[in-house]
């Protein structure tokens, strides 16, 4: 059994779709140069998912925007905020109907990748439409 130390204050992102953990890790900005403890555990057996990834980060609390981004990568992932080695708050991320100020349009010719502006995406069915270039893209493409 692989053992990863508990963290004292920080965040555990659990029930990440297997294979998406590394993207969550990178997206949360702990992939390089982060000074606190951080762990990425991949392909852990899971009753619900079969296999799952887990991310543990000491000294970092996941913001609402970051939780929305995690939802795009892995709907159903759970966020556990840890304080003094105990779970202070736990919630399951949900895909938002609208993203504002978060996400990156994958269209290289979209104005949001050329000029400074607040990015905005609206959910249409299972996909998202960029407010500016109007391109319809998959949720994972926004991360």
């Amino acid at each position: 059994m692989l053992k990863v130390d508990v963290i004292e204050n920080g965040t555990v992102v659990d029930h990440i779709k297997a294979g998406s953990g590394l993207k969550v890790f990178v997206m949360l900005g702990v992939a390089g140069g982060y000074s606190e403890r951080a762990a990425l555990v991949m392909n852990v057996p899971s009753k619900r998912l079969g296999k799952k990834d887990i991310v543990k980060i000491e000294g970092k609390t996941v913001s609402e925007d970051a939780a929305s981004m995690i939802a795009l990568l892995s709907p159903g992932a759970s966020i556990n905020i840890i304080e003094n080695s105990k779970v202070a708050k736990k919630y399951v991320v949900s895909v938002p109907e609208r993203l504002r100020g978060a996400g990156t349009c994958p269209n290289p010719n979209c104005i949001t990748n050329r000029e400074e502006c607040v990015r905005e995406f609206t959910k249409e069915g299972e996909r998202f439409r960029c407010h500016y270039c109007e391109r319809l893209v998959g949720a994972e493409e926004l991360v």
Partner: peptide, 22 residues
């Protein structure tokens, strides 16, 4: 550039008409 005219409309109080964006 696609979406540029929408951005123009966002920063402009006057009516903006799209003459073609990318």
């Amino acid at each position: 550039v696609e979406g540029s005219v929408r951005l123009a409309a966002d920063v402009c109080e006057r009516p903006v008409i799209n003459g073609g964006d990318g």
